[in-house]
Design a protein around this nucleic acid. Structure first.
Lengths: 160, 160
DNA sequence: GCAATTTACTTCGCACACGAAACTTTCGCA
DNA sequence: TGCGAAAGTTTCGTGTGCGAAGTAAATTGC
């Protein structure tokens, strides 16, 4: 399954892996740092910015946007409600749905924090040249597709 | 601070961000899936592979290798010791140090699991053409450097 | 119409993950 | 020698993060 490859290729792969790992961990560190200054946790800052951008959303919509399970978001909203940053409001059209809304305090805090999570990575990508940008779009898309294929092979294997 | 940019650029940036996010979350999902098949959690699988590769290490060394805090690793090792996958051994040279060692059961399990975390991403990168590979090395390194610069600006700002 | 299914959310149990504080052992140095 | 600082680890408190099971409301199928 594993193809032979040269030492140079191996070094290249390691360098790319290291860069990706760095981008990820540094992104997390920065988000956490910005959140800490406002006495928030990272996911709480993310939720605040989602609500500021999109207005009221249901809990499920929120879960999708921040890519977490409903059960996780329930806990996050519990704690944010305790701090009076958000309010839960049962929908009138569909009484299963809960809308999450910023309180005045929450909205003020969101305004005071200029930085969205991912903003730094976004700006770093914008600093690339046009050619590099196009290449990166092409390569990262291809990588994602290839990972998807490899994942499916792996998933198929597990059934046996 | 934010420069003006065209809608096309914005779409490109979003696509790259999405691809990176996908690569990361899918990588985590896959690692977790492989671990689950062996009744392990992701960090436990990582620890098993580190111990298989490097032999006995101190708890602090292990923490560095898996990029987690000592206090986090203490808990992981507690649970793995409970499952008889590893053993703690107080060092004889420096009695502050605890060495973590695979048990026979742990070593056997490590041998049975062929997949290292990150292996799929590694293989996806290897499937790129030589030209794409070189470009990716160049761009990802540049991105990492740019993020580092932006992060330092942000850190400097926090002192005021 | 209404039983069966689906959807939206919550609860529970477990495993990280981190920072601060405590604890033990070792080291440095007066 | 002896004592305070430093190193390595653990403990504690809080906050995610996930999956399974539970509840209530809405939808579907017949």
């Amino acid at each position: 399954m594993t193809l032979p490859f040269t030492p140079e290729q191996k070094a290249d792969v390691d360098q790319v892996l290291e860069a990706i790992l760095y981008l990820y961990t540094e992104g997390r560190r920065l988000t956490k740092e910005y959140a800490r200054r406002a006495n928030l946790t990272s996911p709480q800052l993310t939720v605040l910015k989602v609500l500021e951008t999109f207005g009221d959303v249901s809990l499920s919509e929120l879960s999708e946007r921040i890519r977490a399970q409903n059960s996780t978001v329930t806990g996050i909203i519990d704690r944010m409600e305790r701090e009076a940053l958000v309010k839960r409001e049962r929908s009138k059209e569909d009484r299963r749905v809960v809308h999450i809304r910023l309180t005045t305090k929450g909205a003020g805090l969101a305004r005071d924090i200029p930085v969205e999570p991912m903003e730094i990575l976004r700006r770093a990508i914008l600093s690339l040249t046009a050619t590099e940008g196009r290449e990166l779009v092409k390569i990262s898309t291809k990588l994602a597709k290839r990972v998807q294929e490899l994942a499916q092979e792996g998933d198929a294997e597990k059934k046996k």
